[in-house]
Amino acid sequence: SAVVMEEGSPGEVPVLVEPPGLEDVEAALGMDRRTDAYSRSSSVSSQEEKSLHAEELVGRGIPIERVVSSEGGRPSVDLSFQPSQPLSKSSSSPELQTLQDILGDPGDKADVGRLSPEVKARSQSGTLDGESAAWSASGEDSRGQPEGPLPSSSPRSPSGLRPRGYTISDSAPSRRGKRVERDALKSRATASNAEKVPGINPSFVFLQLYHSPFFGDESNKPILLPNESQSFERSVQLLDQIPSYDTHKIAVLYVGEGQSNSELAILSNEHGSYRYTEFLTGLGRLIELKDCQPDKVYLGGLDVCGEDGQFTYCWHDDIMQAVFHIATLMPTKDVDKHRCDKKRHLGNDFVSIVYNDSGEDFKLGTIKGQFNFVHVIVTPLDYECNLVSLQCRKDMEGLVDTSVAKIVSDRNLPFVARQMALHANMASQVHHSRSNPTDIYPSKWIARLRHIKRLRQRICEEAAYSNPSLPLVHPPSHSKAPAQTPAEPTPGYEVGQRKRLISSVEDFTEFV
């Protein structure tokens, strides 16, 4: 048969007729292969192709491409040299491709048809291009793949890379869960390890502090508590009631339409708007009261037996805890006409967050109470924005700035309102402590230090009264110190430094 060459192609190359033996071998191979691939376009007849790359030819070592076609129900084999250009295909004639002069020997084609199974398996396991790669995943090629499931790999992101949580363990979102698992493993320790309690022994800490320079003076030496005195035992138990972190309780009120001037209507609300609910979820963490331990979680007086509701929101960081007394989460009882059960919590909070959804101005004093010092007013606006402002009593104007209003988005509203309420509550605590000038409020841990110092002074006084020969370590507060001759004046800087060093040991009130 003659071949018409394309323009620009090399000279004529004689194409030899395939021997009958080659056709029989390739026909047997075509019957084993699956003929249901995917359909081509209507211009080209339905056909199945599979590209198999052999590394070497037997005796020649030339890479070839073998295409199996099922045109007219008769499979045909096409061998081509890759750099050459194939002729145009037609549905009426068999596929013809040019070969190099080196394939002119018909014996070479017979060798190609009689490829060993080793070469076929190696060509099938190679990388296939384009559409033949999808075909190689079918059941027909499963014989050339190794048996057994593939090893499982770690989760992959859409980009093909490992997620960040699997790369950096410290930033993994499941870090707290692993800590819980470690605690569970520790709890399952053997009885021999049960006595080993991690941490620092208080006796060891005391020993280090006792021999430090801070205890060089007799006034700073630790003293032993009497065991037989019940009054001192009660004082030590009272110390446990003062937490070592700051605590805040903040009221949250929802004002519906037409309720801006009605205290009873505001306290009777059992739910609010959708934006109000989203605002609550951002204030803190939802907790169930019956599962809380009052000595570990500050509840601000809420009952854990269901008297004040089942849930509330709280927030904490390293040095403070805040609980929100939310009116809509507290039960509304029919027998309580004046809502006294709610007001006994909300009316005693220094700061209230008022979500004013009424469309009218909310005035300070609508919720009557002796300790309502500051109101954080949240007014929802259009386009997911809110107006946040402050209202306070006249005696609080020096501590709280009420002249600045803020426009905040719904997303950042819980954070801004919480921070403003916490700052206002700190100012309210300082303002409330002014009624007792001898006990200015600095912080909870300073209050613990003052309680310890008062307890020490009482013990020293009782020891001096029981044994008059012992001198008083600290003179009583009601006694007057003996007159001392004025010492020589020293520079102001040295006096300030000495006073600062003494105050650092005794108390921190002056620095606050």
Rank of each mutant, 00 (worst) to 15 (best):
P486W: 10
V252G: 00
Y245I: 15
K499E: 15
P489R: 10
Q241W: 07
G359Q: 06
H248S: 05
L501W: 08
C314Q: 12
K444N: 04
V378P: 00
P380Y: 00
E257F: 09
N348Q: 15
P476E: 15
S504Y: 07
T328Y: 01
I326F: 03
H338S: 15
A251T: 08
P489Q: 09
C340V: 12
N356I: 00
K290M: 05
K363G: 06
E288V: 09
I223R: 05
I266T: 03
A464C: 11
E228Y: 08
C292S: 09
A265H: 04
V400F: 09
A322Y: 06
E288W: 13
I367P: 03
D336R: 10
V304P: 15
P468T: 09
A265V: 02
Q370G: 15
I367L: 12
E494A: 10
D341T: 10
A463P: 12
D317V: 00
M330I: 06
K368A: 14
D303S: 14
Q497A: 15
P442A: 07
A447N: 11
A251H: 03
K363E: 11
S352T: 14
G258T: 03
N425K: 01
N386Y: 01
Y254E: 01
A327F: 07
Q241E: 15
S433W: 10
K343Q: 11
G359L: 04
E384K: 06
A427I: 07
S260I: 08
E218Y: 09
G492A: 12
L225Y: 10
Q457K: 14
G258Y: 08
K290E: 07
D395S: 09
V404T: 12
S262H: 07
E228L: 07
W315H: 06
R456Y: 13
D361H: 07
E494V: 09
L253T: 02
R275Q: 00
G300S: 15
I440P: 14
S352A: 13
H338M: 13
E384G: 10
V408C: 06
S235K: 07
T281I: 06
D357Q: 03
K249V: 08
F324V: 02
V378R: 01
L289S: 15
L381T: 03
S403A: 09
E228S: 07
Y274H: 07
V400L: 11
D341L: 15
A405L: 14
I287T: 10
S219I: 11
P414T: 03
N412F: 03
H325M: 05
Y441N: 08
E288G: 08
P437E: 11
L390C: 10
S244N: 14
R500D: 14
I326P: 05
T438S: 12
K343L: 15
T247P: 04
R454G: 15
S235G: 12
N269M: 02
L289D: 15
A265S: 07
L239G: 08
S469K: 06
Y274S: 07
G398Y: 11
L302S: 15
D361Q: 08
M420V: 05
K406V: 15
V252N: 00
C292G: 15
C392G: 03
H271K: 05
E494Y: 08
H478K: 11
V374L: 03
V304C: 11
I377E: 04
V335T: 14
Q484D: 12
T281P: 03
Y254R: 01
D336C: 10
A251E: 03
R234S: 14
T332S: 15
E218G: 08
P486N: 09
S389N: 07
H345W: 13
P222S: 11
H325N: 04
V374R: 00
T402C: 11
Q321M: 13
L381N: 02
L239T: 07
L289A: 14
I353G: 00
E228K: 07
D361I: 06
D382T: 04
S403K: 08
Y383R: 04
R339E: 11
L390E: 02
R456E: 15
H431D: 03
L329A: 05
G272K: 02
G492P: 14
P226D: 15
E233I: 14
T312H: 10
S358G: 04
R456V: 13
S231E: 14
L449F: 07
